[in-house]
Amino acid sequence: MTAPALELRQITKRFDAQTVVDRVDLIVPRNEVVALVGESGSGKTTTGLMALRLVEPTAGRILLGGQDITDLSQKAMKPFRRQTQVVFQDSYSSLDPMMTLGEIIAEPLAIHAIGTPSERRDQARHWLERVGLDGSYATRYPHELSGGQRQRISVARALILGASVLVADEPTSALDVSVKAQIVNLLQDLQGEMGLSMLFISHDLSVVRSLADQVVVMLRGRVVERGPTDRIFAAAHHPYTRALLDAVPVIDPKTRRRRTFLSAEELAAGTPRFRPHEIEPQPLVDTADPQLVALVGSHFVEAIVTEGR
């Protein structure tokens, strides 16, 4: 069995006294898209940044293609930087306003000293076209583009080195609906063509459903539920996941949406409870607190396991 493209083990981040990410386990298998969902402040962005070693974890390990990169110096990281890439949410601030689009796309090549300047220019043009923009855009500046076009530039820059792992941090949430679909399609196409493994961070479940193979739900720094996309959408157990699902817009106006807002108490009260025979056989911690338990079909949920009636 080959090692997964990206693996996070018990990754934890504390800022001062606040635990932003709390012992999160996460596996992105090769050629798969794993969606990390949750509301803002749930720690999903920090998790993504730690996977790239852009934020240093307080504890836990980061494995890239089976290799532990947690303690590598930034210098030793450099070869791994060719394998992992990132697309951010804010397309405007992710592009240097003083550089032309051609320079921006070719920057990775320049950093890794690949090719001559003219070869880099050709590559940049090639990639402009590959993300659906005209080659003449190379001499333009970011401020002349629309949000969707800028996001295409970010994608081109991310993939020009032939990365195998892409962390996409809410790449579509600042975009209009129609443009959103274009970017999702672009990511999907490139993922298929290049055999990318992707960690797709989002709070937009409609996008997640069409793109992701697996879904991981985070709440206040903890993973509360994870499983194959269809399982999550069909049979979510955690109240928070269900609340997120209820928030997805429905096209049919006749279907009345249930809007669910959950307070901390409601969440605590709604935490699923299982008796041991209802879940897969597994080692359990003897505690009254919720813990991640395995259900059928590699579906995990944070629940309380009780012996009671």
Binding site: R81, F88, D90, S93, S94, E107, I111, A158
Partner: peptide, 22 residues
């Protein structure tokens, strides 16, 4: 706080490159 700095770091850019180019 601009993300293009983080993007450059993600690309493995040296601090020198970030200072000089950005």
């Amino acid at each position: 706080e601009k993300e293009f700095i983080m993007a450059a770091q993600a690309l493995g850019a040296s601090p020198w490159h970030i200072v000089w180019r950005h």
